[in-house]
Amino acid sequence: MRNMLLLAQFEVKKMLFNPRGVIALAAFSLVWLLILLYPIRGASEFLISPDYKALIEGLFGPEVVSELFKWSVAELAIYWIAALYLFPLFSIFIAADQFSSDKARGTFRFLTLRASRESIFFGRFIGHMTIQTILVSLTVLATIVLAVSREATLLMPAIGSGALVIVNLVIVLLPYTALMAILSLYANSARQATIYAILIWAAMSITIAIINNYLPIISELKWILPGSQISLMINTQGLGSFAYAPVALLQTLVLLLLGRIYIKRSAI
């Protein structure tokens, strides 16, 4: 347990205090700055206008986007949509090197004689989740600042729904990070792990689509793919988003168990 936390702490340090990590963070911040300044700030102005609301509802149907207009802080509504799609993508890149380069370099061999493979696996996973939680929190904070700069009275509602958004996004990212842990354990480099991830998502999406088409009886199979709930989560807000949390949590649990078995058996 102590070793697990030590390794998690070291992983966060690796991201935040070394040049490569800092460059990745700078790129990440820049992308989010652009998203915040243009789509989020711009679109939230639209979202408030009743004409625009009528137009959107006319386009997509009132059922599909109904929740979008219920957000008390319009900026967070747009942020929610952007983050639901972008963060999992970031996750695939950020968490791609949980193990691969250490394994290829042999650095792992220095660790396994001092910490159990289990604590290495979970330590790294916790470390990467911590990094992503920090990133999510920072972007939510920036969105809140943006909202408050428009309307100061939004501070309290923004903090409330911002906190819920953070928790929901972190839950969404759990299975992605867990799957990347397994893939980076198998791959020899971070790039290879990312390619495997893309292949898995593409192949599984296609398979699930085919199954849905021909064997609708087992269409529930789609829930095994991480992120399958994201498109449905768009039209939820606040506590309502937690309705999909069990999907992600269950996927994470299964993936972590598989990863634990894999790291115990794999040659390093």
Partner: peptide, 28 residues
Amino acid sequence: GRVASLPQDATLDPNFDILTQLILFGTL
């Protein structure tokens, strides 16, 4: 911690200085 080894061809993490990594090993 009771068994240690010098593995052939294994290298340390290039991102951190030597002392930081040895301190991690020690704390582990």
